[in-house]
Write a protein that binds this DNA or RNA. Structure first.
Length: 468
RNA sequence: GCUCCCAUCGUCUAGUGGCCUAGGACGCUGGCCUCUCACGCCGGAAACAGGGGUUCGAUCCCCCUUGGGAGCGCCA
C-alpha cells in the first residue's frame, strides 16, 4: 500500500511551493490507489499558529486535496517521541550532551577556520558520567562515524553521503521537546509512510534521518525529493514574490483547477500536453517523470490557463464564484441580470473571475463619469443625431432581447447608411461608461431597457454639453 | 569554506546517440476574423552555458570550468 503525506509546519502562509509538494504527494497516492495523510508539524510552539493551521486546512479544502488520515498534530504526539528517544538512549544510539551554546559556536568557528564543515565534534559522545554541574543538557543521536549512507531517491537517483560528513544531531532540546529530524522519522515510521515526497531542500537531511530509522530498526521509506520552485525572477520564493498564500489566488479569482494544472506542469510533463483535468493528472502523474531542476513560476501562464478553464465552464458553475467576487467589491447584484447570464457572456473575455466582476459593474451599478479616453473618442457631436434617433427606436422596441436589439440596430445602420462600428462603439460607451463589453446587443439586453434609455439620455446630454 | 543537487528559446518544457535545418506551451510579434474587448485561426523572432574527451556520429554518455540552488541550528 502506497502511503504518502504532506507535512507542513504552520509557521506562515501555505504558499504555492507547499501546494505543489502537497499536489505531488496527493497525486502519487491517488494514482496508486494509496492513502494520503496530513500531518501538521507544529513542534516549534513559538512559531506555530492556529491561524496558519487554518490557512493550510482551508487551502487544502479549496484545492480539493482529500485526506485519508489526519490532520495529525505533532504537538500532541509527544509521548511517542519521548519513548523513541528513551529507546535510542537504551540501545546506545543516543547520548546526553552538556555543551553550552558558546562552546558550540566556537566549535563551529574553528571548524570553519580549518576549512571543514561546522559540525559538532562529538565531545560528549563518550562521556561516562554527567558533569558535576551544568546549565542544561540535550540529547544527541549517535550518527555512525564510518561507512556511507545511500539515499535511493526516486527523482534524484542514488545520492551517497560519507557518514563522516554527518554529525551527531540534537534530537531532544534542553526544554525537553523533540526536534524536527527526530519527530519526522518517528512519525513517518509510525504512520507507515511508504513514500516521502518533499522539497529537495530536505535532501541533505535525509541521510541523517535514514540513520535514525536504522537505529530504531524501522523500515526506511522511499524518498522522492522534488525540485524547489522559484519566483518569476528565478530567485527563491519570498513573501514579496510569488509566495503569497494560496488563498490569495482564490481572492484574485483564480480557479483551483487552473492553479493545480499550472503547478503540475512545473517539473512534470506528459509530452506536449498542457491542459490536464484532475482525472488526467491522477491517471498520468508519476514521480519517474519529474524533473530534477528547479522551475521559475510564470504568472502569465497561470492566468492563461485560468482563462482556458473559465471558457469551458458554464454559467451555473461560475455564478457562485462571481457572486463572491462581487461581494468582495461591494457590488449589489440583486437588481440586474442573472449572474449565470453574465458569466456566460463574460467568461471568454476575461482572465479571472475577479476581472469578470470588475468588468461587469455596469450591469448592476450606474456610473457618474464616462471613461475620458473612450468618451473623447466616441461621444462626439457627429453621433448626437444618430444616437438620439436610435434611442427613440430602442424605447419603442418590443421585446427587449438581444435578437430584437441586434435587428433594430442593424436596420438603423442600413437606413442611415452608416457602418455598424460607427454606432455600436458610441452606444457601448454610452451604456457601459467605457469601450469594453460583450457584443452590443447582448450588452444592452442584459443592462435592461430602462437603464439603457437613462444612460443614453445622459450620454446625449454629455455630447451636447461638449459641443456647446 | 565544506557536502549535496541542478544546467535546452525570456519562462515552463519535449528530446534519452543518428528521426533535430531541436518540437510544444506562455509571453512577445506580423496577419486574418471583428461593433469594442476577448476568443479563435494562420505566420514570425527566440535555446542545446563553455571546454575537453568517448564514438563513424553527440542536446543526449564521461570529465573539467563557469553559473545557479540547497544543507551544514536546541527552525522545519
Amino acid at each position: 500500500m502506497i502511503r504518502t503525506r504532506f507535512a507542513p509546519s504552520p509557521t506562515g502562509d501555505l504558499h504555492i511551493g507547499g501546494v505543489r509538494t502537497a499536489l505531488f504527494s496527493w497525486l502519487y497516492a491517488r494514482h496508486h490507489q494509496g492513502e494520503f495523510i496530513l500531518r501538521i508539524e507544529d513542534t516549534d510552539i513559538e512559531r506555530s499558529s492556529q491561524e496558519a493551521i487554518n490557512i493550510i486546512l482551508d487551502g487544502m479544502q479549496w484545492l480539493g486535496f482529500d485526506v485519508d488520515e489526519g490532520p495529525f498534530y505533532q504537538s500532541s504526539r509527544n509521548e511517542k517521541y519521548q519513548s523513541a528517544i528513551t529507546k535510542l538512549l537504551e540501545t546506545g544510539n543516543a547520548y546526553y550532551c552538556y555543551c553550552s551554546k558558546d562552546e558550540l559556536d566556537t566549535m563551529r568557528e574553528t571548524a570553519m577556520a580549518r576549512g571543514e564543515k561546522p559540525k559538532y565534534d562529538g565531545k560528549c559522545r563518550n562521556r561516562e558520567n554527567s558533569p558535576d554541574n551544568y546549565d542544561s543538557r540535550v540529547i544527541r543521536f549517535k550518527t555512525p562515524q564510518h561507512g556511507e549512507t545511500i539515499v535511493n531517491d526516486l527523482i534524484q537517483g542514488e545520492v551517497r553521503y560519507e557518514n563522516s560528513e554527518l554529525d551527531d544531531l540534537i534530537i531532544l532540546r534542553s526544554d525537553g521537546s523533540p526536534t524536527y529530524n527526530l519527530s519526522v522519522v518517528i512519525d513517518d515510521a509510525e504512520m507507515q509512510i511508504s513514500h516521502v515526497i518533499r522539497g529537495d531542500d530536505h535532501l541533505n537531511n535525509t541521510p541523517r534521518q535514514i540513520n535514525i530509522f536504522l537505529a530504531l530498526g524501522a523500515t526506511v521509506p522511499t524518498y522522492a525529493h522534488i525540485p524547489l520552485i522559484l519566483d518569476e525572477n528565478g530567485k527563491k520564493l519570498s513573501k514579496r514574490h510569488g509566495a503569497a498564500s494560496v488563498l490569495q489566488y482564490k481572492e484574485n479569482g483564480v480557479l483551483p483547477e487552473a492553479l493545480l494544472n499550472y503547478l503540475v506542469r512545473l517539473g512534470w510533463s506528459h509530452g506536449d500536453q498542457e491542459v490536464f483535468s484532475l482525472e488526467e493528472m491522477v491517471k498520468l502523474f508519476d514521480l519517474q517523470d519529474v524533473n530534477k531542476s528547479a522551475a521559475a513560476i510564470n504568472p502569465e501562464k497561470l492566468i492563461w490557463l485560468n482563462q482556458q478553464y473559465l471558457k469551458n465552464y458554464d454559467g451555473e458553475t461560475l455564478a457562485p464564484l462571481l457572486k463572491e467576487q462581487l461581494d468582495r467589491l461591494s457590488i449589489n447584484y440583486t437588481q440586474g441580470p442573472k449572474l449565470e447570464k453574465v458569466c456566460e457572456v463574460q467568461k471568454e473575455r476575461v482572465k479571472t473571475i475577479k476581472e469578470m466582476a470588475l468588468q461587469s459593474r455596469y450591469f448592476y451599478e450606474d456610473f457618474d463619469d464616462f471613461d475620458p479616453v473612450a468618451s473623447k473618442k466616441h461621444l462626439r457631436p457627429v453621433i448626437l443625431e444618430p444616437l438620439s434617433e436610435l434611442k427613440n427606436r430602442l424605447m419603442a422596441l418590443e421585446p427587449w432581447d438581444s435578437n430584437s436589439i441586434q435587428q433594430s440596430i442593424t436596420q438603423f445602420c442600413e437606413e442611415i447608411e452608416i457602418k455598424m462600428g460607427k454606432v455600436a462603439q458610441p452606444l457601448r460607451v454610452a451604456v457601459t461608461g467605457n469601450g469594453i463589453s460583450p457584443s452590443i446587443d447582448v450588452t444592452l439586453a442584459l443592462i435592461g431597457k430602462d437603464r439603457v434609455i437613462k444612460r443614453l439620455d445622459k450620454a446625449l446630454e454629455f455630447i451636447q454639453a461638449r459641443s456647446a
